[in-house]
Design a protein around this nucleic acid. Structure first.
Lengths: 135, 135
DNA sequence: CAGTATCTTGACGTGTACGTCACCTAATGG
DNA sequence: CCATTAGGTGACGTACACGTCAAGATACTG
């Protein structure tokens, strides 16, 4: 087991890859969601694969309307000490709640999709000459 | 066909029902997402079933991280003149794009859920005594 | 008929998530 | 050697989505 694989990204690398600005990435760090290594002399931020994965999760959370505080909690959830059994049990418990929330979001989106399809069918019927698809 | 069913809500009614403030509802109106009737004398806002439905959609959009401008466009999409065939064809076209977006969101959420379940299984294995679930 | 409740329209304040400078410090290339 | 490029730290600005008064009109209630 080697200590750390050396896939290193600069802040510009990640910014380009995910279509965001370096400023945003620094802001996530400022809010405590990222803590990249620093080059000893330059103080330059050096991101590894795990930082990149965290960033990816942050952006996914943002796309779904979560605030950075919520995302931070979620990230910390999967960062527990695998030695502390009690901590892990609580992580599983909280995780289950979040899984249930994701399920609910999926359900709501499927409902939304169905409603959009219903509208679509209505429009199609009207276009086909049925005058009005209203109830 | 009667002109309008008289299920009337005050701003406080809707605010209470959806757990938001009257201010938020007025803001949505200010941004052009709602246009309730007004009582002739008092200028009081009177919401009907369709206003309520729009508000529901607004809040759903907000929960999924959409901005009010995007939501407004989406709402207008399903408000086209059912006489203008060309307009309807374009509505269906845009609607299909949005349906595809919703599909993508569902896919991403399912992926997220799977990842969370994977973590859960890993934790469970560790708790069961397999020392470490890491790769 | 005074008091309370509910609505109205401003208008200014606030938290979040960055954008946008300015200014400084290395590393690199002709 | 000097200019360009990439990154660093403040610090102030900004868009969005409201929150939070203030001040006034109207309506019901004991």
């Amino acid at each position: 087991m080697d200590a750390s694989k050396q896939t290193i990204y600069t802040i510009a690398d990640l910014a380009a890859e995910f279509g965001i600005t370096p400023r945003a990435i620094r802001y996530y760090e400022e809010m405590g969601l990222l803590t990249p290594q620093r080059s000893q002399e330059t103080q330059q931020r050096l991101y590894d694969r795990s930082d990149r994965a965290r960033l990816k999760l942050i952006l996914r959370g943002r796309r779904f309307g979560f605030g950075l505080k919520e995302i931070k909690e979620l990230l910390n959830l999967y960062r527990v000490d695998t030695g502390e059994k009690e901590q892990m049990r609580r992580a599983i418990e909280y995780g289950d709640k979040h899984i249930a929330e994701v399920d609910e979001m999926i359900r709501e989106l499927q409902e939304t999709k169905e409603e959009m399809l219903e509208f679509r069918r209505r429009f199609e019927r009207i276009l086909a000459g049925e005058e009005d698809g209203a109830k």
